[in-house]
């Protein structure tokens, strides 16, 4: 079985993806560096979310989805026969657009992933729960109500809980699919600060609709349009001196 150890950079070569007859991603090549934040931007339906979901193989669940190309995380081919999809997903966490806490207590939400790998000792779980919640900077808000139902939290808290829930599986990559689009500005700010912290140990890839957000948090930015990767580079370069005319039109707000 393939293990994920060592560096956590992400590469995609010759990526093509189809939903039935629809060619959703067209010949994409990209190298995403480890321990940085990379933003995927572009208008709705450009394929950025689809592209993100390749890396924890969530597209496997979609009917009629077919793909070509070579995808590696830390050098490991993620579609290799020797790669267990569940091991991959433990190493590549994901945060969704809509917060999706499980209908159980805050504690049980965080302990879910560790319990999946067979950790049952109380003290050990307690420690993981506290550490994960602290890393998601939500510990102080919830430490007195760990046994309360997670659905009683506010949207912003729920989203940070979901981040903490991913962290409890000790992932090396975190994929975020528009994690703040359903949240208010204050919660959004908190999550952006959090990403700044987390990238010290994690490779973060974030899909965002919000270009200001990309400039605030991302080291690198990739611009997608109609299933193509139009431009990819340092965030500063993309936003100050885009090489492609389409990128310029998009970031200046002329379409999308």
């Amino acid at each position: 079985m393939n293990e994920f150890i060592g560096s956590m950079d992400i590469t995609a070569k010759g990526c093509n993806l189809y939903y039935g007859d629809f060619h959703a991603l067209k010949d994409i090549n990209i190298e995403i560096p480890e321990k940085q934040v990379t933003a995927l931007i572009g208008p709705s339906g450009c394929g950025k979310s689809t592209f993100l979901k390749i890396f924890n193989r969530m597209n496997d669940l979609v009917e009629g989805c077919r793909m070509e190309g070579e995808y590696r995380i830390g050098g490991v081919d993620i579609f290799d026969k020797e790669t267990d999809v569940n091991v991959l997903r433990k190493n590549v966490g994901m945060v969704f657009q809509k917060p999706n806490p499980f209908p159980m207590s805050i504690y049980d939400n965080i302990a879910f992933a560790p319990r999946t790998v067979g950790i049952t000792k109380r003290s050990e779980l307690d420690e993981i729960v506290e550490r994960s919640l602290r890393r998601a900077s939500i510990w102080d808000e919830v430490k007195d109500r760990l046994r309360k139902n997670a659905l009683g939290m506010s949207g912003g808290q729920q989203q940070r809980l979901c981040i903490a829930r991913s962290l409890a599986a000790s992932p090396k990559v975190l994929l975020m699919d528009e994690p703040t689009s359903a949240l208010d500005p204050i919660s959004t700010g908190k999550i952006e600060e959090l990403m700044e912290e987390l990238k010290k140990d994690l490779t973060i890839v974030i899909v965002t609709h919000n270009m200001q957000q990309a400039t605030r948090i991302a080291d690198k930015t990739a611009f997608f349009l109609l299933g193509e990767l139009v431009e990819y580079g340092n965030t500063d370069d993309i936003f100050t001196s885009p090489r492609d005319e389409r990128t310029e039109r998009y970031i200046t707000g002329r379409f999308g």
Partner: peptide
């Protein structure tokens, strides 16, 4: 809600679990 299943799979949980 489908989001709950997705959330569990994204944590590397098997289908049966």
């Amino acid at each position: 809600q489908g989001g709950l299943r997705e959330g569990a799979y994204a944590l590397g949980t098997s289908k049966v679990r």
